[in-house]
Simulated assay, not measured.
Amino acid sequence: MQGIVLLLPDFGLILLGWALYRLVDFGDKFWSGLEKLVYFVLFPALLFKALASTRIDFATAAPLFASGAAALGCGVLCGLFAAPLFKHNKTVFASRFQCAFRFNSYLGLAVIGKLHGAPGIAAMGILIGAMVPLANLASVWMLARQGNLGLLREMLRNPLILATLAGFAFSASGLTLPASAGQLLGRLGDAAVALGLLAVGAALKLRGTSGSHAASCYLLAVKLLAVPAAGLLAASSLGLSGVYFDTVIVFAALPTATSAYILAVRMGGDGPGVAWLVSANTLVAMLTLPLWLTIALRY
């Protein structure tokens, strides 16, 4: 119950975004523009401020990275076993494979920020910065036969990675953010959480075909059950506690990000199928994420 109560406002914003998209005629351009604003401006501002205001000990954070990599690796490995369920349809499998391990950064930052404030956002920020290249590498590798997308170029253009690196650099410099700059970034960050979750809700696609129901159920179970279990096991084995322990559990239990759909479309894959699976992932996570969060808080 503790996890459910804690996450009700965040999932409420997702459902509100879904309702607004369907009941109010803002237009697709509005929602597309909102998602770009969140992705390129608001969330990078949130990440940069949290990291720039925190002194980061990378030696202490090493088990955090290892635990996150273990959870992500579990998703990649288990996702590979789904290939036979797609009856040798390589394009569909390559597209949906990424739904076993990609993660929704917006929801992750919102949840951990509510739990631990700026230190939590900083911890999630450095974990996301380390895991995004690994997730993209695995996704692009599987889709490589279906199209052509430069991985290094994508990494250099990813605003979350750039904001993370900039935050690292500022933190290491020993400088302090001017008060006015801190207030500006803080207000942008406050807007990021609400608008980001509304955008997630607007992107939900509840209609369409799921293809193989067995394959879809398997990938959902991998992302929302096996990956968090692997994260919990790794974090416990490596002795993580406090904000780092909670960060790993939240990270591992996140539903798939909408970026999986974008990548599938760019590389000529099964865009509609991925959109449906991402939406199903998000809706089922409304049940599983509170469960894992409750386990983390009581561990």
Rank of each mutant, 00 (worst) to 15 (best):
F168P: 09
Y106W: 03
V193W: 11
A50V: 06
A229R: 03
A110D: 04
R102M: 02
L107N: 05
L134S: 07
L46E: 09
S259P: 09
L220R: 05
L7N: 03
G129Y: 02
A82H: 07
L233Y: 00
S236N: 13
S171D: 07
L152E: 13
I262L: 05
L220V: 11
V140Y: 00
L134I: 07
I112S: 11
P84F: 03
W18C: 07
P44D: 00
G174C: 01
A221L: 15
V222D: 04
W141T: 06
I161M: 10
L220H: 13
L51M: 14
W18I: 01
A70R: 12
S216V: 08
R22H: 15
L254Q: 04
V227M: 09
I128M: 05
L238W: 15
L85V: 08
A221R: 11
Q2I: 01
G268K: 11
G79Q: 05
L34V: 06
A61N: 02
P290N: 06
A214N: 00
L15W: 14
P159Y: 14
L13G: 10
A94C: 14
G271F: 13
A264Y: 08
L162R: 09
A203I: 15
F48A: 12
I161G: 11
R102S: 09
L109H: 02
G129I: 11
F251M: 03
S210Q: 08
L107K: 06
I4C: 01
L72R: 10
G12Q: 07
A192S: 05
K29A: 02
L240M: 15
S32G: 01
A296N: 08
I161F: 02
Y39P: 09
A135S: 15
A199K: 03
P178F: 13
L204Q: 10
F103H: 08
G269I: 08
V140T: 08
Q98C: 12
F97V: 07
G201M: 12
L293H: 10
A69F: 00
R102L: 11
L185D: 09
A194S: 07
D57E: 12
D190H: 01
S105A: 00
S212M: 02
L16G: 09
Y39N: 14
A100L: 09
N104V: 00
W18P: 02
L6G: 12
L197G: 08
A179S: 10
L198K: 06
